[in-house]
Design a protein around this nucleic acid. Structure first.
Lengths: 356, 356
DNA sequence: CCCTCTGTTGAGCACGTTCTCACTCGCGCA
DNA sequence: TGCGCGAGTGAGAACGTGCTCAACAGAGGG
């Protein structure tokens, strides 16, 4: 009877102990050869490398993390990856992390505080080295403050909780909204609408999002500065594309129809376009539209859409850099990075100062 | 001089040992109380829970993984999260994983074999319990085969490497392309174009992607079956929106202009629309367009776009389920899940059998 | 009184790695 | 010969957890 030949590549993976035995050296020597530290003879190094190759050895990062105290992993707590804006932020974040040898665990919160709390707990237990967060609420943020107190490296992106002592990476939402509306006023518009993000707090929390609030505040200040009043019907609270569609359809059918509508984000702008088409209105002749965030589709609608473009990818890379810097220097002063937006004039806004 | 009071919540986090000491019990008892196994007296349980609360104790998942051998983490090796299709797949995948207590590490490959190899290596070292992969190439896949041989749980999504022994979750790409083109032929079109995905192999690999190939094969078979010849100018190889735009603009300006153009994916369809607009052609009067994948913008272009909709989110959840099942039952027979697509008729295809 | 059974507890091993410490050996120099 | 020195090596600690094993106390039955 032939002896059973042991499989050269065990299913459960081989440890450095197996490599050492195969190479005929101790664990310490094998570790030195593979880890590239200490001093190892040329002969031993060759044998260890051959053994590792033969056994298909793969370092166990989990065990390494036990010793080093770092997981080389970052966490990302965002609303929804399938939202194109966050998708680009995440892409930038993973690229920035990866170039420094870090990987990213992704958690979606759907703007829900409960999910954010649970996600934060899981990421903490997984001992990620840092966390990117787009906070779900300005109000309910004790869990984030607690994480910061425990020394967790945190960076807030897109929006931020006032008073939370972390690095922040945002665009100038207030100024962008203010300037865009000012431009639209300058070409003769006086009736400008801007649906407001509706707070939805099934858990009793307000869910105020600073970025949306600031954009809207910029809009209101530009209106007020020009001496224009904003009827409350122009700022209906809504959540998501279909609610915006309904709300905007209502105001477009009213006697006091706005001449321009401002979409605070991608989904709002889509809802506004839906409503305009539903009311059979012509853009920009009968109603002008402008939005926040320049997604891929803004050039395939007719007329192409004028937008405030924000550098979503760069927000992600910048956040990664800030976070890695924080991990490296925990006590360095917190920084707020404000990235510039770009006004892209296309053809969706009518110039009312020109006749015809 | 006042004695220095030790911080109640140490920055580097407390272990179960600290909790046990605080509660005045042994590590084993504290572990039992917190882990909910074995038997612990009511008194001890209360003291341990109070101590854990006071110290802000958080289980160390890394150490737990050392013992249990599982990380409760899955990996995702996809081309690009900022691609809306993959963003939705990933959302479905993370949702499916999360509902079973798993988290997801995200790695982008940009359809590059080198990145895929490196990403697979990292995920393996991190000892993820399973990996979702949208293979970058049919040809260069030894690394994937090797992972399967080593017992790594793998599921292929959107596309697959023939002969690779894993679960597969796809849509019926061939049939979808075939049926769509057959419909278009049925309403009188004979000159139908479909730009082909260009293989870009800077590393010498072919980078053939089965999903794109199958859609295109369906198109060619439908054409052949109707006795229609496809000039090579109708299937220019291109990569990405701008290359497609250029290629399609060329054929639209030629004498042998197609009456309909089929976009094999989201970015192709966008490029086709770019070209049509650039040539000042009217859709569908002068040229018809239909595409694969129903993204959010397909209803805001005029006319709204007729598409083959695919359940991207469901692909993700289905892949998560398949992967979790595989982890639980490593030797169960491999399955291929084919999810249905939906033909959505909107208004971007002209019926040539009707006059006017 | 002794024995058994049950509830509760603590000691200690294992996971796989990184890294420190101590040891051996060969060589050069006083 | 004795000593120091450096290269190379192995033993072993540490990280924090899950879990097994043995011990111990108290209750209850014979």
């Amino acid at each position: 009877m032939l002896p059973v030949v042991q499989a050269s590549v065990p299913a459960q993976g081989s440890s450095i102990f197996d490599v050492a035995r195969e190479a005929g050296v101790s664990r310490a020597t094998a570790a030195r050869a593979l880890g590239g530290y200490g001093s190892v003879s040329e002969e031993a190094r060759r044998r260890v490398e051959a053994a590792a190759e033969k056994l298909g050895y793969s370092v166990n990062s989990v065990a390494r993390s036990m010793v080093t105290g770092q997981t080389m992993t970052l966490g990302a707590l965002i609303a929804d990856v399938s939202n194109p804006f966050f998708a680009r932020v995440i892409r930038g974040f993973t690229d920035g992390a990866r170039s420094a040898g870090y990987d990213v665990v992704l958690v979606n919160t759907d703007e829900t505080v409960d999910s954010e709390i649970h996600g934060l707990k899981v990421l903490t237990e997984k001992r990620v080295d840092g966390i990117l967060v787009a906070p779900a609420s300005e109000e309910a943020s004790e869990h984030l403050a607690s994480a910061v107190d425990h020394g967790q490296a945190l960076v807030q992106v897109d929006r931020f909780v006032p008073g939370l002592d972390t690095d922040v990476v945002v665009v100038n939402n207030y100024e962008s909204g203010y300037q865009a509306v000012k431009r639209v006023i300058a070409i003769g518009h006086t009736r400008i609408a801007a649906p407001l993000q509706r707070t939805r707090g099934h858990d009793g929390h307000a869910n105020l999002i600073s970025s949306m609030l600031e954009r809207h505040q910029g809009y209101r200040d530009a209106m007020a500065e020009a001496g224009l009043t904003v009827p409350s019907a122009y700022t209906p609270p809504a959540h998501g594309r279909s609610e915006v569609r309904t709300a905007v359809a209502g105001m477009l059918n009213s006697a006091d129809r706005p001449t321009a509508v401002f979409g605070l984000d991608d989904s709002f702008t889509l809802g506004i376009i839906d409503a305009v088409y539903g009311c059979d209105l012509v853009v920009p002749d009968q109603v002008s539209i402008f939005g926040f965030d320049d997604t891929e589709w803004t050039t395939v609608v007719r007329p192409p859409l004028s937008v405030i473009a924000q550098p979503a990818y760069d927000l992600g890379t910048c956040a990664a850099q800030a976070l890695l810097h924080r991990i490296h220097a925990p006590d360095a002063p917190r920084q707020t990075h404000v990235l510039p937006t770009t006004w892209i004039e296309r053809g969706s806004i009518r110039d009312l100062t020109r006749t015809g």
